[in-house]
Design a binder for these strands. Structure first.
Lengths: 161, 161
DNA sequence: GCCTATTATATAGATGTCTATATTTATACG
DNA sequence: CGTATAAATATAGACATCTATATAATAGGC
């Protein structure tokens, strides 16, 4: 089941190496968590919806809008070609339709289909217990405070580019 | 330069959407930071060393050992085929050699070459200023505390699999 | 009006990651 | 001893992500 870390001594330790700077270790943990969370999400989603794809559906449905590929890419903080790829997958699954703009024929607006809405609702239900379990498993954690610090860190890294 | 988020209102806000659970937003930020940090690292590394590749060199050199692909995969918390791929790239760059085990011919031990050591030293020097800048840019942040919480979160997610 | 610059999207090629599976070698048991 | 199981690595096929570049269409300047 856990094929990657049967060794408790490393599983329960901080990531990275003793001599690494603390901030480097933080980034190492972040990288690992990102991968683990992605896969855990997709494991809960046998319907074949990836986290990237869910993100797009969730985004559009919450806002209740149609958006261009560029707008969605910006909102999700990914490059435009990445979003082109994700939208293409969603189109193949009939979870979104591409609505051409009659005034500007370069533009296609992404519109979630009823099947897409249903898929997103299933995803939310499938993931909720896992999120609750994480919350329960970290009683003392102040996620709001951490969110604030992570956001600062993200903006800082982003500003350097 | 920044082709993904010229819109300050979104760049300076928390990631995710207002209605998302806090923990979900945390994971969203983590995913974004992971990508940003990866690319920033590789941008500083024109010598063509990726973060994954650096991680292997750094790991082996700090410990001063040779390890099998499986051991390295476990230490870096990635699946074995991922590590096979990374080691293959390092081999092509002559940054590591594969030493066959005469007693167990299934095993190959990864050994960093002098060129690999030099590449890692260059990487450390190239990244240090960036890490310092991040530290300076977040004066009030308690990275040690955050590392502790991230580690708990990572272990929790890991245990669910 | 025409040529140029900008914008929106798509394509190509690379990396890392995963799961599932194949291959090779070692170990264990009847 | 021979067969079956286990272990270490490799291969195949998917995704997501990136950068660089191509294509198409709008907008602007002369």
């Amino acid at each position: 089941m856990n094929d990657k870390n049967d060794d408790l001594s490393s599983a329960e330790a901080e990531a990275g190496l003793p001599g690494d700077p603390v901030l480097f270790k933080v980034l190492t943990e972040i990288s690992i968590i990102s991968n683990l969370a992605d896969r855990e999400f997709e494991r809960l989603m046998p319907g074949g919806l990836t986290l990237a794809q869910f993100g797009v559906l969730n985004h559009l449905l919450r806002l209740g809008v149609q958006q261009t590929i560029g707008e969605i890419a910006s909102a999700m903080q990914v490059a435009q070609p990445s979003m082109s790829s994700t939208v293409k997958k969603l189109t193949e699954k009939n979870y979104v339709d591409l609505i051409p703009d009659t005034e500007d024929r370069r533009v296609k607006r992404v519109k979630v289909t009823p099947a897409g809405r249903a898929a997103r609702d299933r995803a939310v239900k499938a993931v909720a217990p896992g999120l609750a379990a994480l919350k329960d498993g970290t009683p003392g954690a102040d996620w709001k405070a951490m969110l604030g610090e992570l956001t600062r860190l993200r903006i800082l890294i982003d500003s350097v580019r």
